[in-house]
């Protein structure tokens, strides 16, 4: 017994070192599981507020670019509005409730990462503003990812530049669909998988979100095919150049699907039967 005490007191520092490293390693492992650690995360209240302040300072340096982006978005929205004005809509048509299936929450990106293998971003909106885990996040010109952890005023988002992200997409010109998964190389390109060989695809085809996703509305632009390689009469790799520029995210839209829970419950019920 005495020998054991002697051993512990002699190697006290080494044991403490190993213990602390062990705790740190467990924390690392936790972030690599889908449900992230709830404690060491940037959506925490204190760190979230600090990141928000930091973002406010840095946002002054990019005001010009942001203004230009907004003007561009404004112009395209105005064009779209003109198109609708030209349509002769008979006044008797009743707009059905299902047409307003999706609504949007505007949020600011207060922490961005895009150079790692598993990238996440932090937004300045939380459950008070109506954000919940597993909601889609989009840009005017592309998709960003899915919300992961939500606190009262902040939320973290797993972007499509993440090894755990898999998004249902399809071709704009026909209805072949596949899934989007990132191989971790370049933050401007992601990869398309599960496309049947008979699908007629070529460079320059536009990819949009598919209708199988409960996170995103259909037909949101994602990117264009930039490279296709073949092996053994199947597609080996299909690169998709993203429309969204992940190195300059500032304002994003969180998609709330009014019927998400209903659809999920129904699907779960059907699977159980």
């Amino acid at each position: 017994m005495f020998q054991i005490f002697k051993f512990f007191s002699k190697n006290r520092i080494l044991l403490l070192f190993l213990f602390l490293e062990f705790v740190a390693f467990i924390l690392i492992f936790q972030t690599h599981s889908y449900q992230q650690s709830k404690y060491i995360t940037s959506s925490h209240r204190i760190s979230g507020n600090l990141l928000k302040k930091s973002e406010q300072i840095h946002s002054y340096f990019g005001l010009k670019e942001k203004n230009e982006d907004l003007i561009e978005e404004n112009v395209s929205l105005k064009n779209e509005l003109e198109k609708y004005k030209q349509l002769q809509v008979p006044p008797t048509i009743v707009v059905q409730d299902t047409a307003r299936k999706y609504s949007y929450i505007v949020a600011k990106v207060i922490k961005n990462s895009y150079l790692k293998r598993d990238n996440t971003i932090t937004l300045d909106k939380g459950s008070v503003d109506g954000v919940q885990p597993n909601m889609g996040v989009i840009l005017p010109n592309g998709i960003v990812g899915i919300t992961l952890n939500v606190t009262n005023h902040f939320s973290t988002v797993m972007t499509i530049l993440n090894s755990k992200s898999s998004i249902n997409v399809k071709f704009k010109k026909n209805h072949h669909f596949g899934s989007l998964q990132w191989n971790g190389k370049s933050f401007t390109k992601t990869q398309l998988w599960d496309i049947p060989i008979q699908a007629d695809i070529k460079k320059g085809d536009t990819i949009v979100t598919g209708g199988h996703s409960i996170f995103f509305p259909e037909q949101i632009p994602v990117g264009v095919i930039s490279e296709v390689t073949y092996a053994n009469k199947t597609f080996e790799r299909i690169d998709v150049k993203l429309f969204a520029d992940f190195s300059a995210l500032h304002t994003v839209y969180i998609v709330t699907n009014k019927y998400r829970d209903e659809q999920q419950n129904l699907e779960a019920q059907t699977e159980n039967e």
């Binding site: 006290r12 520092i13 403490l16 070192f17 602390l20 490293e21 705790v23 740190a24 390693f25 467990i26 924390l27 690392i28 492992f29 936790q30 972030t31 690599h32 992230q36 650690s37 060491i40 995360t41 940037s42 925490h44 204190i46 760190s47 600090l50 990141l51 922490k111 990462s113 996440t120 932090t122 973290t156």
Partner: peptide, 29 residues
């Protein structure tokens, strides 16, 4: 002992801000 504990704390603060679990904590300790 004191440097191990303090650098562990500092690492946790950094990890909390960078949202990376315990990567900085592990390396700093």
């Amino acid at each position: 002992t004191s440097i191990l504990w303090t650098s562990f704390l500092l690492g946790l603060c950094i990890d909390m801000l960078s949202n990376e679990g315990g990567i900085h904590t592990f390396s700093l300790v």
